[in-house]
Design a protein around this nucleic acid. Sequence first.
DNA 1: CGCTCCTAACTAACCGGTTGGTTGATTAGA
DNA 2: TCTAATCAACCAACCGGTTAGTTAGGAGCG
Lengths: 193, 193
Amino acid sequence: MVRDKKATKAKLLEAALTEFATYGIAGARVDRIASNAGCNKAMIYAYFGSKEDLFEEVLKIQIARVIEAVPITPDDLPGYAGRLFDTYERQPELLRLAGYHRLENGFEAISKAEGDMHVEKVAAIAEAQRSGRLPAEFEAEELLGLVVHMSILAFSTPVATRALVVKAVARLVGQRAEQRFAHRTEDQLRRSR
Amino acid sequence: MVRDKKATKAKLLEAALTEFATYGIAGARVDRIASNAGCNKAMIYAYFGSKEDLFEEVLKIQIARVIEAVPITPDDLPGYAGRLFDTYERQPELLRLAGYHRLENGFEAISKAEGDMHVEKVAAIAEAQRSGRLPAEFEAEELLGLVVHMSILAFSTPVATRALVVKAVARLVGQRAEQRFAHRTEDQLRRSR
DNA sequence: CGCTCCTAACTAACCGGTTGGTTGATTAGA
DNA sequence: TCTAATCAACCAACCGGTTAGTTAGGAGCG
């Protein structure tokens, strides 16, 4: 047996991710998380404080991962939506985590990191609108909301495909998906994993 | 004290709607439902079988209500999305219920009533496409999915408004919102309540 | 290098309250 | 009087969280 605080925390976070994504906050069981992590339950409370705190930590990490993995491209919003779609497809946990968070903790409860990035993204879109690269028909914040919402199409219909999301956003914002982003190369997929 | 099976079931269903919408399936407490309904907990098991069965019943009723309240209008998809938006705004419970159901019971688990109506709606859209009233750019099923998804925009962004949803769908399907549906009259609102 | 000691990581067992679900008795009303 | 609706009380399992005690392993020392 090794005594490694960092490794233990990591194992707990991974097990918690699976547990929370599967059962939600109310449905998650701390015993199951500890058991799947191969750790003692008390470590959860020593390292994270409470079940809810552990959830917040897991969510924060997942959100940061997506934000880092998929930077916004105001000149190619269809591609942006497509890449978000890819991420959600590859890591379905995030969408489920965020869904449970919205439902159980209310809508306005957004993590700090997400809020900061949101402002930046809105600014980037507004800038693209000012220079005419994006239609000014929608407010910048609305436009971002629409594009992000389209990327989670799979949340509401089983017929959601990447191509459909890209096409819909393209029609919405009057942009063609840029060639270099229209389809991800195998290399891009590998790097972002 | 009155002994009225029907009334008791109705009170339980109403309390259950609030409870499940607020806390989800795992988070809902049967004691609280019984208490808020002013009934004994045992009645839930006598009339509905189990907590899960009660949830299914509540969800079925809500879905049926929305389907009845908002018939599809293939010639005015923006208006259709707008009217769905109105319904969700007036009865936020449905959106929360459906959200929890999707997350906890998997994506393919759809109630019978919803499935039947879905086929009809797809057919109606396909017909409108054949006669050129809707663009054939999207498959009928995809188009329905997109429109319905847009109507739940409020699920993912706080800046969602009715006007935004209508405008977005209009751009998506290349239809203008028809005047008679663009804004609901007070009378229409009252009738659908 | 070998020994001790000390601390931080870890554990088993436990705790009080809660949970979904049951049951046998009670009672309203036909 | 008979039946179906209702209820209080109960139950075993489970839940999130705590605690008193155990142990691995590095620091300090000779």
